[in-house]
Design a protein around this nucleic acid. Structure first.
Lengths: 365, 365
DNA sequence: TATGGTCAGTGCATCGTTACACCGATTTCA
DNA sequence: TGAAATCGGTGTAACGATGCACTGACCATA
């Protein structure tokens, strides 16, 4: 069961290995149609598959796309990784998955290692404000696509960013609660020292102020300033927040915007610990619309990220740039998030239903 | 920023590339201590990292472990993949992740491609009764570890299997419901034409019979025989099952054993559609104990798989065999599943509490 | 002092693919 | 008609690491 190499193909087709190589690398202008056909049939007859290692050694690069996510253990990232793999497969390349645990040092190490192993395109799911820790690799030519983090002023020029518009997302989520009559709305998140999280928080603030209320008057959870950031602990964060926010009933919120669904679900769990009913006693809205949002009891209202589309875009940017200059380098693609209204949010008991204004987003499916 | 190769190291250490290669490949008996030290310091000074592609081309193999899961979009597999990556990292190798979508043809293709790309160890998460579709690759020398599928009589000798004892798991889950006074217990799953699923089902049957009841008398969901199998659709399966099983109240179950947590959660969602309360009206038990089981409302009783430990074992078998003959090839490691009792299971209203016997598993945390 | 054995380390061919430089034959054009 | 350009294709030297077969120096034994 010896390997079939380019030499075997060349011999079978009656040409030199160079010609087969030219054929394989789309320099087909350099040969007559008959030769092309002979090579084609020799390849399929022998079942030839180019040797990746040899190619990589020669070229110094792979066809592999690196994907660095915080943690595939988190259902949102798991789902995203899945979509990325599907999209990459369709484009004929494989995906090397790395879990950064949101540790900048691990991000840096993974990016460097991938680069040194010949990976030339990486989808980096980070929300660090600065890309400084990987900028030297970008300078050497890495094709970097960030996901879940819009472009920042100091980003290297070549970086493309794919993200939802988190500010608008935060506004839509908050506006939804305001329209339901809530006026005591808390924002629950681990540390918001990250680009997308602070954008969501700003959206929340904007919506509050736009409604003539003051953010200072809102129930505030101090966990926002803490260093909790892990994706695995997201649910723990929500659970802890519920406990803290309802410690003093006088200052407790009637509605909550959670930074993501896992945190929202943890928050719901915390409410349950306290004997409170989600939807009924407290409205909760999350972000991402993971598969479990719809499964939960009550089903969770959430700001959906179109991950299938985003994964496609990210992969396309990562592998096709150059051949298909779809997006300008340095640009930021901001997709529109969609509000999915379910039953974890409800009209505040006793509030005036007629005060509702038009919602800025789509309705439930 | 030219690459630093083994030649540079050799020059810096004042030896030949061969000697450096000997050093790198643990043939250190072949050199004097002083040389060893010179090479060591040259490597760290120059920041040398061996070129994977070159190594692979020369040796015909990689240090990469292939991981084929049904879908990382499913939280259980996402969590498992995460654990595998951690375990592999600790052993200095990387993980190439593939989603088979439980399609035998995709499994085969991935395994073949990985093999041809020099991957010599694969953790295959399959539950197909036969490994025939990849046996030719195993025959060529692939180190295959199956996960979530105990060894079968016809498996090639070299295969090692890591799994929980699904039969016992099914028994424990069912016994738990019987002890709570339930006598109308349904088993809910997509197709059970897979090793682990049918084992769980047999465990269920065994427990029913052991209690002096008859499986034939139990409410039966016909979806068992259907072809639904996807991991993404697991929740849909559960939801559909709830709808069907409760169509006729006379034959409806009072408790349900679901094939996994996603299906259990979908089932709970289906109960909700019907206005039934989980725990209160119907007891539901799942498998896996994914992170969401504890978050759910009510928290889901589940049979936990010790995935961290299992991932470590799987990786160790995949990469260390030979150097550390920890397990005999052809053997099957069956770990003990642990029943985690939460609130989705409750005593059947009106049943005699004193009939409870000792449980065969640990209590809730 | 031959003979042989160890020790420490080296030379070289090789893995499969690629792309530059080149080549002979035909066509183009002034 | 001769010079140059084009066409279709080939030879060859890498890319970086590896490990077998080898060498020369040193030591021990007879």
């Amino acid at each position: 069961m010896a390997r079939v190499t380019i030499q075997h193909v060349a011999q079978a087709a009656g040409v030199s290995p160079s010609t087969v190589s030219n054929f394989l690398n789309d320099r087909q202008g350099r040969m007559v149609a008959a030769t092309r056909v002979r090579i084609e049939s020799a390849i399929s007859e022998l079942g030839y598959r180019p040797n990746r290692a040899a190619r990589q050694l020669r070229n110094g690069k792979t066809q592999t796309v690196g994907l660095v996510v915080p943690s595939v253990g988190n259902p949102f990232w798991g789902a995203f990784a899945h979509e990325v793999e599907i999209a990459a497969l369709a484009l004929g390349c494989s995906v090397l998955l790395c879990n950064s645990e949101r540790d900048p040092e691990r991000e840096r190490r993974y990016v460097e290692e991938l680069w040194e192993d010949g990976v030339r395109s990486i989808i980096l799911c980070t929300s660090l404000p600065s890309l400084q820790h990987v900028s030297h690799v970008i300078a050497e030519g890495l094709r970097l696509v960030t996901f879940d983090r819009p472009a920042q002023p100091n980003d290297p020029d070549s970086v493309v960013s794919i993200s939802i518009d988190n500010n608008v997302g935060g506004q839509v989520a908050t506006a939804h609660l305001l329209e339901l009559g809530h006026t005591r709305i808390a924002f629950v998140s681990g540390s918001i020292r990250s680009v997308n999280r602070s954008a969501r928080y700003r959206g929340y603030c904007d919506a509050i102020e736009a409604a003539g209320l003051s953010v200072a008057d809102m129930p505030h959870w101090t966990g926002l300033d803490a260093d909790l950031f892990g994706d695995v602990e997201a649910a723990e964060v929500g659970r802890a927040a519920a406990k803290d926010l309802f410690a003093d009933p006088a200052t407790a919120p009637t509605a909550v915007v959670a930074i993501n669904d896992m945190t929202a679900l943890g928050f719901c769990r915390g409410l349950r610990d306290l004997g409170l009913k989600v939807g009924q006693d407290v409205s909760v809205i999350g972000f991402d619309d993971i598969i479990l949002a719809d499964l939960y009891d009550p089903p969770l209202t959430s700001v959906r990220q179109p991950i299938t589309r985003m994964a496609q875009l990210a992969v396309a940017e990562a592998v096709e740039r150059g051949s298909n200059e779809s997006t300008d380098p340095g640009s930021s693609v901001l997709l529109r998030a969609e509000l999915i209204v379910r039953e974890s949010t409800a009209r505040l008991a006793g509030s005036d239903a007629t005060s509702a204004t038009t919602a800025g987003a789509a309705a439930s499916r």
